[in-house]
């Protein structure tokens, strides 16, 4: 039982269920729109490392990602809705990943698949590995594992669908591409003298608060 909301004014869930029993489907435009696009998420055909093999396995017969409407792996970012960062992102690869993300049209989503994409994982100590792709692009779903099983990827996809279904298409809660500010491209890092620059996207990964140590008296 939910309160009447702007999208279904003056009607409760129980009443809607009652109507559905009589063959009347009552819905709002936002709900219908989100229902449609949540079941046709087209991922980018983009593999980075070990997790990519499990991503391929998820699209094969045993796990069959087609049951969730996402079997259409697109080779071009222009046609894709979902970037699955499937594996270790190195400093050499990070600019390409961000560039691919910028090339995808809105609305777009990102899944960080596996420990490496989330935090650098087992290779975190390495000098050439990013400490997580979420420092550069906004990540919607994190799937832990090394590599995550295909079932875990499917679970992540279902969670993403849930997220899409709950998105507003107008008003202050609307996603970034529907806001008035316009350009929401992420800055593409470049190879600097010692590290990639910038080392993170400040809008996504704000600097941690400075520790205030009590002074000795």
């Amino acid at each position: 039982m939910s309160d009447p909301t702007p999208t279904n004014p003056g009607i409760t869930d129980a009443e809607r269920d009652e109507l559905r029993r009589h063959g009347i489907l009552l819905t709002g435009l936002e709900e219908l729109y989100n229902w449609g696009r949540s079941h046709s998420v087209w991922p980018l055909n983009f593999g980075l490392a070990c997790c990519a093999i499990e991503m391929i396995a998820a699209s094969m017969a045993k796990f069959d990602i087609a049951r969730f409407g996402s079997e259409v792996f697109r080779p071009s970012p222009r046609q894709a809705d979902l970037l699955i960062v499937s594996g270790t992102v190195t400093k050499k690869m990070a600019p390409q990943v961000v560039r691919l993300w910028n090339q995808m049209p809105e609305p777009k989503y990102c899944i960080a698949m596996g420990a490496c994409a989330i935090s650098g994982g087992p290779f975190k100590q390495g000098y050439n590995v990013l400490k997580g792709i979420d420092r550069f692009i906004p990540v919607d779903i994190y799937i832990p594992g090394c590599p995550p099983r295909p079932e875990a990827l499917l679970h992540g996809l279902v969670q993403l669908q849930e997220k899409i279904r709950n998105q507003a298409i107008a008003g202050p809660d609307a996603p970034r591409h529907l806001q008035a500010e316009g350009n929401c491209d992420c800055p593409i890092p470049e190879c600097g003298a010692h590290d990639i620059e910038p080392a993170q996207n400040d809008a996504l990964w704000p600097k941690p608060p400075e520790l205030v140590r009590p002074t000795k008296t």
């Binding site: 490392a49 594996g87 000098y127």
Partner: peptide, 14 residues
């Protein structure tokens, strides 16, 4: 190459 250089040998030495 080098887009997936994950420092395997250096990590193993440490």
């Amino acid at each position: 190459f080098g887009y997936l250089h994950r420092n395997h040998e250096k990590l193993a030495e440490n």
